[in-house]
């Protein structure tokens, strides 16, 4: 019983971090219908940056995550300007393929800079935990979870309560109408994409503390993100949070009760199961094009 409670808590804590990592991806998909396969690479890049600053200066890696958030914003802005803005008008799928190219090239660049050894940041609290009866709550996971929730809350507030948020949602529905009320569509898209990238700042920092990683880890992370958004329903932020919790739980339960070797397969199995059972995701609208044109 304790094992179960313990596993569920660990799963949910990690799920919070997954939710943050998927939120930016989900935002970009929801507004631009682009599958940004470079999102995983941005997370791993943020993880390397956090680890590297911590390694050099000893500054807490989670704190570094907050500091590199603007850096990742700029990375997103540049990626948008140089790549996405040029191809997405031709075709969404072409933009996805381009982002696939970016992801793979980025893996190579990170390998050149930081090598292919396994890394992870190990601040003082890295191996300590709070004791709650017989249940253990690791501090690193808890802090990462709390930070992720705070950033997700801020993101939600931004989308619902500000003019930028309304403009972003307007662009996601009807570009021409958005332009006609005076929204500069291209600039709003660029900002939205960059905000999506900025969410990987803290996400990557959390990764660097609670996981080990190498440049190639971005394949695993994009797999997890795809799983989260397919589970929740593509483009739904709330769905992404739910999907993240399920994936976190699924991985934790598999590790505890089956075999850690199979925990890596959980995202892919979940993808296939959800498509068989409920293709539109748990909270998503239909993926079908029906009616949308009529």
């Amino acid at each position: 019983m304790t094992l179960l409670v313990q596993t569920v808590i660990l799963g949910l804590l990690v799920g919070g971090v997954y939710a943050l990592m998927s939120s930016g991806f989900s935002l970009v998909f929801g507004v631009m219908r682009i599958i940004n396969l470079a999102h995983g690479a941005m997370i791993v890049l943020a993880a390397f940056l956090s680890w590297w600053v911590w390694d050099r200066t000893g500054i807490d890696p989670l704190l570094v995550g907050v500091i590199i958030t603007p850096v990742m914003y700029v990375v997103g802005r540049v990626l948008y300007r140089l790549v996405i803005a040029r191809v997405h008008r031709i075709d969404h799928e072409l933009a996805m393929v381009a982002s696939f190219g970016v992801a793979i090239a980025a893996g190579g660049v990170m390998a050149l800079i930081w090598g292919t050894e396994v890394r992870s940041a190990t601040p003082s609290y890295f191996n300590t935990s709070f004791q709650l009866g017989s249940v253990v709550i690791p501090q690193a996971q808890l802090y990462a979870f709390a930070g992720a929730l705070a950033i997700l809350g801020a993101l939600y507030g931004l989308l619902r309560g500000t003019f930028l948020g309304r403009a972003i949602r307007a662009c996601s529905e009807n570009r021409d109408s958005a332009a006609l009320v005076g929204i500069e569509v291209e600039r709003t898209m660029a900002q939205m994409f960059a905000i999506g990238a900025a969410t990987t700042g803290f996400g990557g920092a959390a990764l660097s503390v609670i996981y080990q990683f190498v440049p190639d880890s971005h394949y695993v992370w994009i797999g997890r993100i795809l799983c989260v958004v397919i589970l929740g329903g593509l483009g739904s932020l709330l769905g992404a949070a739910l999907g993240a919790a399920i994936l976190g739980l699924g991985e934790a339960l598999t590790s505890s009760y089956v075999d850690t070797r199979w925990a890596t397969a959980v995202p892919y199995i979940l993808i296939i199961v959800i498509l068989l059972v409920r293709p539109q995701g748990l909270l998503g609208g239909k993926l079908r094009a029906d009616g949308a044109r009529a």
Binding site: V83, L94, G101, I104, A105, G107, G108, A111, L112, T116
Partner: peptide
């Protein structure tokens, strides 16, 4: 040791280039 990394950069970059310049 870096051959693998260069290979990734080359193919990723090429794919990017094709989507941008010769879709």
């Amino acid at each position: 040791v870096d051959a693998g990394a260069f290979r990734l950069i080359m193919f990723g970059g090429l794919l990017l280039l094709v989507t941008l310049a010769l879709p």
